[in-house]
Nucleic acid binder design. Structure first.
Lengths: 195, 195
DNA sequence: ATAAATTACAAACTGTGTGTATCTAGTTTT
DNA sequence: AAAACTAGATACACACAGTTTGTAATTTAT
């Protein structure tokens, strides 16, 4: 009698999906979306393409799931970094949150997935929808707080938040030696909003 | 005796390339890079794939040529808009240049090519290299002037220019009703750099 | 001027990858 | 225990990218 062979459907399902996501994450991170084929992914997961297309509509849907997962991990990393902070002012919170983001983004695979491929594969709309549930959400809250506290000028919240978000994304793509210059410039741009 | 049949090689060559670029520009603009196949492009150009692969290394090289051309057109449009201006201050020049950019970017196809597909297809490096010869170049000059004139704070030129560039790109992707909010926010961010 | 060489392009071929349809094994429900 | 359903493997069809081969036109060399 072998143990663990009689798995419930839910167990099979979740375990298979988990294996697919893990394999896909690694492939997409290493070789990009177009550079990785579904045969490669399922081989790395020890499955066949049948399993993939049973659980995901298509390759893009699998990628979207990876993006979602990666966003969640990113958000966790950022939250963990800014956990033990004692309440700073809203402007300082924005800057420190951005720094935490840049630190969490020092991973080539993460950059490839979230910043290079995701916009083109999922499209702005879909990506913003995902983003709005993670990093962008806290950024919007932060901007909103800063404006309500009259710490920065009164500007349209969503556009400003999107612009800051975009700047952080761009800074995350800078190579290591350029990064300090980007941090400094972003800091100056945010501080310039102070009333 | 039929006229115009005896074309020189240079004429054939340039005319064929022109036809390919025009057809490719339209296809890429309408259906995106992955959404358009090379058979579709050459059919629209009244040629065959043989011609395409004779003049371009691969599909990505054709796309790169389209991007280059589009950047040149964009730069022309912006220059034309800011032609009759009497010398404004460096900060105002930055803001007005950005406005001209946003206006010139009100073309869905242009946005698809330059902002959606180009980063993923060509990669940041290659795209920046092209960009550096067009819009980004003038932006760097503008930032540099503003700093030298002590109109804005002393910050690393390239990172700041890239950040501004990225903000304008993001604003260009906003839909029409959001655009004013983006313009206003960008204006405030730039003005905040003033000394 | 004519032959050789080069260039422009077409047509056919090959490989690879996506998505689908079919089929089997295992699980849950009745 | 049988029927219904789910998970997943195998096989298939199609499309597209890139290459190879072939042909017509132009340029260069003799």
């Amino acid at each position: 009698m072998q143990e663990g062979l009689k798995r419930t459907q839910e167990e099979r399902r979740t375990e298979t999906i988990r294996a697919l996501l893990a394999a896909a994450r690694k492939c997409f991170a290493d070789k990009g979306y177009v550079g990785t084929g579904t045969p490669e992914i399922v081989a790395a997961a020890g499955l066949t393409r049948g399993a993939l297309y049973h659980h995901f509509a298509d390759k893009a849907a699998l990628f979207a799931a990876v993006v979602e997962e990666e966003h969640a991990l990113l958000a966790m990393a950022i939250n963990a970094a800014s956990e033990s902070e004692d309440e700073p002012g809203p402007v300082k919170a924005l800057i420190e949150g951005g720094d935490a983001f840049l630190t969490a983004m020092q991973d080539a695979g993460r950059r490839q997935i979230l910043l290079i491929d995701a916009p083109a594969v999922l499209g702005r709309e879909a990506l913003d929808a995902i983003n709005a549930r993670y990093g962008l959400r806290t950024l919007i809250e932060g901007v909103s707080e800063a404006i309500n506290a009259k710490s920065i000028r009164d500007l349209p919240v969503l556009p400003l938040a999107h612009l800051l978000n975009t700047m952080f994304d761009r800074a995350a793509l800078a190579n290591a030696e350029e990064l300090p210059g980007y941090r400094k410039s972003i800091k100056a741009l945010i501080r310039g909003l102070k009333i």
